[in-house]
Amino acid sequence: MQAFDQLQELWQKHEVEVKVSADEMLQQAKKEVNGLKLKSALNIVGMLASFIAIAALWIFFHFESWTTHVGIVIFLVAILSSTIVLYRDHRLISKSDFTVHPKDFINSLKIYQLNRYSLYNRMYWLYTTALSLGFIFTFIEILPNLSYIQRIFAVGITIVWMVFCSTILRKAVMSREKERIALLIEKFERISGQISTPE
């Protein structure tokens, strides 16, 4: 009985190495890249929808103060410039195919990873600063029309939302995306190695 227990313990400690073919790994990696492309496209669509909504607000509502117009222009410029950066990054991961040019594709993913890091660090702070200025200029006209409680609520919600997006949300998204792209690069490099040196 003791020999059986030792055999069972040895069996449980034994790790089985699962071999995945290059084709299976390629299909899985391509699926993840397609998910990345879809997320990128949805970000662009969301930014364009925001741009159109704010532009429509500016066109169809009458604002008396010049500060509100300045605030809205700041919003539109910030959203448009961020959309252009997002579109550039989307084209970067969409333009090349791993099966046609493996090295170019892996290089594109590495550049995309660096661009995303830059976006979540430098560009994000410029975007947040621009939005904050936009809110300040817009609030100059809007806040006097609100009650004292409504003013505190509007300013408080705006500040809490900006701080939440700038700290917790930004770090979580940046960490998850950095890990996801790093894993993709590693998978494609492994696939490339398996293709170039077949067993």
Rank of each mutant, 00 (worst) to 15 (best):
M1Q: 10
A3Q: 14
Q6R: 12
Q8D: 06
L10A: 04
K13F: 11
V16W: 12
V18N: 12
V18G: 09
V18D: 10
D23I: 06
D23R: 09
E24F: 06
L26K: 07
Q28N: 10
Q28F: 11
Q28S: 07
K31L: 08
E32D: 14
E32P: 02
E32C: 01
N34T: 13
N34W: 11
K37G: 08
L38W: 12
S40K: 00
V45I: 10
V45W: 09
G46W: 06
G46D: 08
L48P: 11
A49C: 10
A53F: 14
A55W: 09
A56N: 11
F60T: 12
F61N: 15
H62V: 09
F63M: 02
H69G: 00
V73K: 11
I74K: 08
L76V: 01
V77P: 01
A78H: 03
I79S: 06
L80H: 04
S81N: 07
Y87F: 04
R88T: 02
R88V: 02
H90T: 03
I93T: 00
K95R: 13
S96C: 05
S96Y: 06
D97Y: 00
D97E: 01
F98S: 04
K103G: 07
K103H: 12
K103M: 13
K103W: 11
D104I: 03
S108I: 05
L109H: 01
L109K: 02
I111N: 09
I111F: 09
Q113Y: 07
S118W: 13
N121E: 13
L126C: 13
T129C: 09
T129F: 14
A130K: 07
A130S: 08
L133E: 01
G134K: 10
F139H: 02
I140E: 13
I142P: 02
L143R: 03
P144N: 05
R151K: 08
A154G: 06
G156E: 04
G156Y: 00
T158Q: 12
T158H: 10
V163N: 00
C165R: 14
T167L: 03
T167R: 04
L169G: 02
R170K: 03
S175E: 15
K178A: 02
E179W: 04
K187D: 15
F188A: 00
E189S: 01
I191Q: 05
P198A: 02
P198T: 01
